[in-house]
Design a protein around this nucleic acid. Sequence first.
DNA 1: TTGTTGTTCAACCCGATGGTTGAACACCTT
DNA 2: AAGGTGTTCAACCATCGGGTTGAACAACAA
Lengths: 121, 121
Amino acid sequence: MPADALSRVFSALADPTRRDMVTRLAVADATVNELAEPYDVSLQAVSKHLKVLQDAGLVSRSREAQRRPVHLEAEVFDLMTKWIERYRRQAEERYGRLDDLLRTMPDDVEPTPPPATGAAR
Amino acid sequence: MPADALSRVFSALADPTRRDMVTRLAVADATVNELAEPYDVSLQAVSKHLKVLQDAGLVSRSREAQRRPVHLEAEVFDLMTKWIERYRRQAEERYGRLDDLLRTMPDDVEPTPPPATGAAR
DNA sequence: TTGTTGTTCAACCCGATGGTTGAACACCTT
DNA sequence: AAGGTGTTCAACCATCGGGTTGAACAACAA
């Protein structure tokens, strides 16, 4: 599992079952058995999903007699949010710059559709 | 590829190379050849990565002579951000509620750590 | 027409992933 | 000590994902 942290988080959330687990864990902690109940898969499969979420840092586990309750770790979400917001902002700024460019565009552009795609390079 | 939209987006961004492409596309549109340049993989591999990003709705492609410039579609990021924020907020509210619970807690609780885990179910 | 450039398609390899079942471990109850 | 409950480990199987190479397609340039 040499993948970087961000990859592990994205990868963990790429599975609908795991996202559903996260959804339910946002409401309340739960045990493996409780989590497994709605899904039509083995307990072992659910346990594996939890391992993925845990390796991604999205959940933590404690011990409580035989049970091992699962707890959502909300902080990791910030990692993703930051990454996403950064590039969404960049892309938006870029549109801003493109607007400026178009606004100050001289008239000597050829009639063929200007390569709006090749703003750089 | 019957996976739902959100799964496709998360899955697409789970790969570091593809995230790097997105990073660079946030700065400017680029062709396959331009995108491939920094990576030590074949052009075909890069083309495949782009297909994944496109299927996830993260990029679009146009035609410009032989070239097929790649363009970042920033809107899809909102889908993820919304999903993430929703559960992050829920989890935080939950802590709030737990704080309330602890604040208004009566004295007749047993000395053993109260099962804060079993709030639901 | 022939060639050159940019890109994708097709077939294949290999390691990772999601699922299974059966056995084992951990902890409580009796 | 023996049994029950909750969870994980181990081995296995099928599919998927990222990589490769070789051939093909698309559009321009001679």
